[in-house]
Computed example of a mutant assay.
Amino acid sequence: MTEKTKGQIEAEISEAVIKFEKEFMGRGPLETKSYIIDDMVLVRLKNVLTQAELKLADIHEHKDGRELVKRIRIALLEQGRPLLEKAVEKILRIKVKSLHTDISTVTGERIILFTLVSAPGIYLDKN
Rank of each mutant, 00 (worst) to 15 (best):
T2G: 10
E3V: 13
K6P: 06
I9P: 05
I9T: 15
I9R: 11
E10S: 09
E10V: 04
E10F: 06
E12Y: 03
I13E: 03
S14V: 02
V17I: 15
V17Y: 07
I18S: 13
I18C: 13
I18F: 12
F20E: 02
F20I: 05
E21N: 06
E21K: 12
M25A: 10
M25F: 14
G26H: 10
R27P: 02
R27N: 07
T32M: 15
T32P: 11
K33S: 10
K33G: 06
S34L: 04
D38A: 03
D38Y: 01
D39P: 01
M40P: 00
R44D: 04
L45P: 02
K46V: 05
K46A: 12
L49Q: 08
Q51M: 13
A52Y: 10
A52W: 09
A52P: 01
A52K: 12
E53G: 04
K55G: 00
A57T: 05
A57Y: 04
D58H: 10
D58V: 08
H62T: 15
K63F: 11
R66A: 13
L68M: 13
V69P: 09
K70F: 01
A75S: 14
A75W: 05
A75V: 08
L76S: 09
L76A: 10
E78P: 00
E78S: 06
Q79W: 07
Q79V: 14
G80A: 10
L83S: 09
L83D: 06
E85Y: 02
K86Q: 15
E89A: 09
I91N: 06
I94W: 00
K95Y: 01
V96Y: 00
K97V: 05
S98K: 12
H100P: 00
S104L: 05
S104G: 11
S104V: 04
T105P: 10
V106D: 15
V106M: 12
E109K: 14
I111D: 00
I112L: 08
I112F: 05
I112T: 03
L113G: 03
F114L: 11
L116H: 02
A119Q: 15
A119G: 07
P120C: 04
Y123I: 09
K126T: 09
K126R: 15
N127C: 07
N127T: 12
N127S: 11
